[in-house]
């Protein structure tokens, strides 16, 4: 369980400066799929960086399974939007997936097994010796997802992971992610600015208003397993999307 209480972030030393995150409190249950929805510049990425311990919060508290987060926790894996920069170009696909594992204390054999399994899960079996830059964007992001999976996290943080992919690749990866989420029994915290994506994927959607406070917290009652065609054709889908759309429209626009 991830608990965020009264989290506030102000960049720089001046406490009077405009906050990137004003005050955010929410909880994510184990194995929940939570989408955080917000327009660009509302502080989504800052929030995720605070949650992952990459940057310190100015005040407030983040607890993962009761433990306060002060640095990147072992139970957490991060998938960045910019896969081409997050994957290391001098390492092969297998190297990119496995390098964190050795530092996590896995033996060479364990790391290899985890790498094989993760690459298999994202349908990239046999791509071990390729370099990321020899792959398409969609495949590169699948490598990044495989790296996160191999790390065996309890919680997966994803920062607009599909935002720079084309629509077709993107819907394929959404379904892949739902499949992985179910099979690997992880909690997913997924940031997006795409309303359809949020409704399609999530159990629950939080709408962030600039400067990052929770504007709306809605449960998505759509049945699972979901399907790109039938789920998106449900009247509940349209209704939810309408609600979220007006919530985002009503939110004050970031400077």
């Amino acid at each position: 369980m991830l608990e965020v209480s009264r989290l506030r972030k102000v960049y720089g030393a001046d406490p009077q400066a405009a906050p990137a995150i004003e005050e955010v409190s929410f909880e994510v249950a184990d194995r929940e799929f939570l989408c955080i929805l917000g327009s660009s510049g509302c502080g989504k990425s800052t929030l995720l960086k605070c949650l992952s311990g990459l940057i310190p919060a100015s005040s407030g508290e983040i607890r993962l399974n009761g433990e306060p987060v002060t640095g990147p926790p072992e139970d957490m894996a991060f998938v960045f939007q910019d896969y081409s920069r997050s994957l290391l170009p001098w390492m092969t696909v297998a190297g990119n997936v496995s390098f964190p594992l050795r530092y996590k204390g896995l033996s060479k054999r364990e790391a290899q097994a985890a790498t094989d399994e993760a690459l298999d899960a994202v349908s990239l079996a046999g791509m071990h010796k390729r370099f990321p830059w020899q792959l398409s964007g969609g495949m590169q992001q699948r490598v990044a997802i495989a790296r996160a999976l191999a790390y065996r996290p309890k919680i997966l943080l994803m920062d607009e992971p599909f935002a720079s992919l084309d629509a077709q690749t993107r819907s394929g990866l959404e379904d892949l992610l739902l499949d992985i989420w179910r099979r690997f029994e992880v909690t997913v915290l997924f940031i997006t600015h795409d309303i359809d994506e949020a409704v399609y994927l999530a159990d629950r959607v939080l709408v962030l208003e600039a400067p990052a406070k929770v504007g709306l917290d809605v449960t998505v009652p759509l049945p699972r397993p979901r399907d790109q065609l039938t789920t998106k054709a449900l009247p509940e889908f349209a209704e939810l999307r309408g609600r979220l759309f007006s919530a985002i429209q009503g939110a004050p626009v970031a400077r």
């Binding site: 990147p72 991060f78 960045f80 920069r85 997050s86 290391l88 964190p100 530092y103 996590k104």
Partner: peptide, 10 residues
């Protein structure tokens, strides 16, 4: 981003 990736993975 590469540096953040490495940090995020401990």
């Amino acid at each position: 981003v590469a540096r953040d990736t490495a940090r995020a993975y401990g």
